[in-house]
Design a protein around this nucleic acid. Structure first.
Lengths: 202, 202
DNA sequence: TTGTCCATGTAAAAAGTTACATGATTCG
DNA sequence: CGAATCATGTAACTTTTTACATGGACAA
């Protein structure tokens, strides 16, 4: 019940519990799912965090029927937890963008064009697969038409994030095509001149 | 000189050194810069990593003139380092997407519409600022026109990542506008019905 | 009977952030 | 003369990942 600083993972959990009570296992599943391509965590991180949130009085646990040697617990957000989550939602935010894909792309000049091309084609395929999954997810929102248009419904917010994901994927695929095109349509390949090419100061 | 497993940070450093030798300080600067909105690291992480890379024989250090109580060292990739980087560039990749922004958006249904709107407007502004910085960065590529079209030039790869960044920002701004529009144009706000609204099972 | 799913935990290691610490130069 | 920039490092802490560990239910 002490004043404990809640981290992003804690809020990610509270955010999921705000729509319905879940077990730690279900939370772990939700963070694996494609709709959850916004935050991930392993169960080994989730279980201790749930214990901390409970200690801080932000969630409560109820023992329910379940398999295995240990208790199966279903967690619910408390009023305090919900209020904490609300305050966090529009508190100041500065994101640190990390993209290993872009880190790789930045090194593509080191590879022979065919290898670079192969890499891009493979990556593009992953995004195409996700595109299919997202299309499937979007179809599900047709079933809750009314709620999707109601800003006080969790479906409204969920749909907004889904649209963001779909947009991002579409554009990324378009970008892959643009880059693949540029790779193919280039002039005669110049010979590489070692580590630090003369005249390059960028 | 031992076989040390290199992590993403190590490759990010090697990738920067592959275009030109730099000091640890310069690497830290490069990872702060807007063009580096793909990986970030503090100097406290960079200096030990450079020592590790040097120990593994992937970079070499030369002491140069500089201020302060300690040696100023300029690092250069070795042939082994460059080869290691090359192999990593198109090795299998599966990214874990993390977006605190989307995590927040997913909770917007908890806020009164005006507060949600204010949050989105503020976030939109950050992206608009970055848009300006990126436009400035893009202009710089006009100076190296030839290299931008040459797949074996680092400028080609750098430009590709910049285009990706610009595209992402433009789309994100468009998405903010779409969502702001939806927030405004909604029907009469329904009263909230507590934690777990009846009938909601999503 | 072998593997996957359900369900929960701990331990250890790696990666990342924040804070402490030193000292020269240069600009206002 | 004070603040910012250059330049490098360590210590402490938090977060994330990988691995170890248990055991029931159910399907191929």
């Amino acid at each position: 019940m002490d004043e404990v600083a809640v981290g992003t993972l804690g809020y990610a959990i509270l955010g999921l519990l705000a729509t319905k009570p879940r077990t730690g296992y279900e939370l772990a599943q939700a963070m694996k799912a494609p709709i959850g391509y916004m935050w991930t965590a392993q169960h080994s991180q989730i279980y201790p965090e749930l214990a901390r949130l409970q200690g801080a009085g932000l969630v409560t646990a109820t023992v329910i029927d379940g398999p295995g040697p240990r208790d199966t617990k279903r967690y619910t957000v408390t009023e305090v937890g919900l209020h904490t989550l609300e305050e966090w939602t529009d508190s100041p935010l500065t994101e640190v963008a990390r993209s290993e894909l872009m880190l790789r792309v930045r090194c593509l000049w080191l590879l022979p064009p065919e290898r670079a091309r192969q890499f891009l084609v493979t990556q593009r395929r992953y995004y195409e697969k996700r595109q299919e999954i997202y299309a499937y997810e979007e179809a599900a929102f047709a079933l809750v038409e009314d709620e999707v248009d109601d800003p006080s419904s969790p479906h409204f917010a969920q749909y907004a994030t889904l649209r963001y994901g779909i947009m991002r994927i579409n554009d990324t695929i378009a970008w892959f095509d643009w880059l693949l095109d540029r790779l193919d349509s280039t002039a005669s390949p110049r010979p590489r001149t070692g580590l630090n090419r003369a005249g390059y100061e960028g």
